[in-house]
Design a protein around this nucleic acid. Structure first.
Lengths: 420, 420
DNA sequence: GCCATTTAATTCAACCACTGAACAAATAGC
DNA sequence: GCTATTTGTTCAGTGGTTGAATTAAATGGC
């Protein structure tokens, strides 16, 4: 079939079939179960170990693994050295030369593309720095398409097969891939799929699975953190860029809300009677802890710094002990703490991850955030809340986007196996 | 085995088996699928209709239904009159004489017990009014046990079999059923299961399924609303009692948080520098919209009203147009709106349900709540948020508790069928 | 060096539950 | 009464798991 950019913004279907459980569902479920164990295991597990862990018989595990190996999702690793007698186990690992995901990111001051393989390794990474606010959406997407074509060529040169792509943008995306509003980019109602359709196709549509998924940048960054950082669990990932977004991970799954617009933490009212915000409200978090607010409070607003060096400068000045900067960060941290207290009271989370521009500022933001949490969270006394920096770098959304593609394959391998 | 009160506070396992998919899982899944359809159907569906809806074959549906009928979960209803030719269908409905759930509630000024059958009908309902603040936890639980024994006897007289019980309390419950903190009741670290063990057993332990589940009152009220009101979806259910709790329903499932302590909306900071709250924070929602705050702002604080007539009096005065009361409700509604705006920005919900004491006050609370939402929610322009009163009455938590028991059977019928 | 022991993985008959088609049941319309 | 139509059941066939037996490949004791 003709290749095309097909888009979709919402939940990848979960592993469990919500519909009828037909005969083949059993195999689908067990493929996902076994592959998931292989993906999360510390060391390459043997078939026997998988059988013991999952409760399946060794016969079943062998059959399932055979399918996975045939589909290039799993390969046999060097036998793990083990003490004692017995036939040596053959370790199973995710294939490094099978399907891979293409991750793209559009942000205010850069474009990024990367390729991540099944095992989670970043196999390609390009960043194109430029202030994109004056560039039209069409031109921006054109540049992005060139970046993507380059990434695809590199991936194929390494023997990888791209199984799909995901694009992160700093704004609200609806379920057709249209960007409804990206305030800091100046976008409103941009039909990303249509605009990309004019460019040479970069991915093929695999049955049912759209070739390109457009999603909120904060959501994808949270997904990246989920897979890069500590294992599954629940946490709030705050992306402090020009705007402030958040990704909510509950029990190892991203929560997207009714329409996919969850996580707008930047407009939580911190002081209901505070200064008016661009969104129409008053005293939103963004007015106290957004990049512009921090720079302005630190006395760096007028300084004609290039957009991408401002955060670096902030860290330098904080390390030097510059009082105005320290005060600005304390105020920002307090505001974040008030907003986070609301979230933790509501959702009972035990971890808060500071990502994006906040990550390098964690040493100065964490104390006031913790102070507010301790003061305002009802259950803080029994169950401490951890506040930590994100483990991914600045382009976490791109890596998270690519990771989301391969994670979907891992969660539903039957779809991939049915492709050839 | 000896019957005992066994307790547990967290998630009933979902329908989808997270573990191994063994042979029987197929049948388990399809039992749940078919029973779920029967439960949510508008009119009694035929086997053929179920087959068409679910995608299963008629043969499979027949076999599944046979199991459900044998287990007293489903019965055949009168044939639905239908136009046209063909053998008449036999309609399937949830059995009214099968398993039932016992729901219990402890609140500040009453105890409640009720029995709900599979179809969701309330078959027994008792409320015992009394100010329980001066009563010791042990005595309170003793009274509750008597209420429960009475309910059980009534249920059995009607031919029902109690399949489990759930208890709602206005406080934080851990996963052993211990009440960690119930501020408005004056409880702290009350081991409910131990205290109930001394009383004559009211339910038997069905394999694996604990006979008694202790949960937060607001969670259970939200569950009740989920099943009584509009179908599955996502909403925030706010219980305005002496304290303010909330139940969060996401995609038809209650979200409980990492430790089951989600929904503490009463302590979301509305004005971070406001008056100190009992929780240690400042300017919490409870200080502006809790029952005491509203009564005090309305000038009814000193009035020596019995605890249970105050809310009624408030409605009367509001209907009479009493300025102080109207002003108090406007202020409370504004505070609720600020807190709700945070929640909606974060979770992207489209419905907010005002429950508990707020339900009858909805006409006065709704306008200021909507005003704040429109002003502060980024996506409000595209997707309106509905604010509506709860459809269940004052003892929603008791009904929701009983409903949660039967809902668990409907979600996982295999467990019940394996019981005999 | 040989053999018993031990653990890993495969093979194979049995079985469970779904599939699809054929068949029986029950009604409306002519 | 006969046909068309729709419902529900029966039955052989099949996919996939089960459990035991078998083969494979190493260690360790004698």
């Amino acid at each position: 079939m003709a290749a095309m950019w097909q888009c979709q913004g919402v939940n990848p279907t979960a592993a469990a079939p919500a519909g009828a459980a037909r005969q083949g569902s059993l195999r689908e479920l067990n493929l996902a179960l076994v592959l998931g164990r292989i993906a999360t295991a510390q060391r390459p597990p043997s078939r026997a170990a998988l059988a013991a862990e999952t409760g399946l018989t060794r016969a079943t595990v062998s059959a399932v693994v055979e399918d996975l190996v045939a589909g290039r999702l799993v390969t046999e690793a060097e036998p793990t050295p083990r003490a004692g007698a017995g036939r040596p186990a053959r370790g199973l690992v995710l294939a490094g030369d099978g399907p891979a995901g293409l991750g793209l990111e559009i942000n205010v001051d850069y474009l990024a593309a990367c390729v991540v393989d099944l095992a989670g390794a970043v196999r390609h990474h390009t960043v194109h720095r430029a202030d994109l606010r004056p560039v039209s959406p069409g031109d921006t997407l054109g540049r992005l398409a060139r970046l993507a074509a380059h990434a695809r060529a590199d991936a194929e040169a390494q023997g990888l097969t791209l199984a799909g792509a995901a694009l992160g943008v700093p704004g609200l995306v609806d379920d057709t891939g249209r960007v409804r509003l990206a305030p800091n980019l100046g976008w409103r109602d941009v039909p990303v799929p249509e605009l990309l359709a004019g460019h040479p196709p970069l991915t093929e549509t695999v049955d049912g699975v759209p070739a390109l998924v457009v999603d909120n940048e904060a959501n994808l960054a949270a997904l990246g953190e989920l897979h890069a950082g500590a294992g599954p669990g629940s946490f709030l990932h705050i992306s402090g860029e020009v705007g402030i977004g958040a990704g909510i991970v509950l029990d190892g799954a991203l929560f997207r809300g009714t329409r996919g617009w969850s996580g707008e933490i930047g407009h939580i009212p911190v002081r209901p009677d505070g200064p008016p915000c661009r969104c129409g409200g008053r005293g939103c978090l963004e007015r106290y802890a957004g990049q512009e607010a921090i720079l302005s409070a630190a006395g760096l607003a007028g300084a004609d710094l290039p957009a991408d060096t401002a955060p670096t400068r902030l860290v330098e000045l904080a390390e030097a002990g510059e009082p105005a900067v320290l005060h600005a960060l304390h105020e920002a941290g307090t505001a974040i703490g008030v907003a986070v207290a609301s979230v933790v009271n509501l959702l009972d989370l035990d971890t808060v991850v500071l990502g994006g521009g906040y990550a390098p500022l964690t040493p100065w933001l964490r104390p006031p955030v913790l102070t507010e949490i301790d003061r305002r969270v009802l259950t803080a006394a029994w169950s401490p809340v951890t506040v930590r920096p994100a483990s991914l770098g600045a382009t976490a959304a791109a890596v998270g986007a690519a990771g989301s593609v391969v994670r979907r394959i891992i969660a539903r391998p039957a779809g991939w196996l049915a492709r050839l």
